[in-house]
């Protein structure tokens, strides 16, 4: 059986593996309890991080769009 590292598991969590590698890692997770524990632990933290997303204020977006409009006018002159 192919041996996978902790970094392979990390790439798997973040979908940075191709279809063939994905299938192999899924098989390895089913057969290797310590790899599955590592996956579960890392995945749990990753899931928790997802709750902390933020967005800029609308006024910041407006200022950026205003700069864009002004620079368009400058370019066309």
């Amino acid at each position: 059986m192919q041996v996978f590292t902790q970094d392979d598991v990390l790439r798997f969590i973040y979908n940075e593996v191709d279809a063939k590698e994905k299938k192999s890692i899924e098989d390895a997770l089913r057969l290797n309890p310590s790899l599955l524990t590592l996956y579960t632990e890392l995945k749990e933290v990753v899931a928790k991080l997802g709750n902390a997303k933020m967005e800029p204020d609308n006024s910041t977006i407006d200022l950026i769009m205003a700069h864009s409009a002004a620079s368009k006018m400058e370019t066309s002159h």
Binding site: Q6, D7, L10, R11, E41, L42, E44, V45, V46
Partner: peptide, 15 residues
Amino acid sequence: LARMRYALKGMRKLI
């Protein structure tokens, strides 16, 4: 990859 792994493990320990 190593930095990310350490970061996630570090956060898990803190949690």
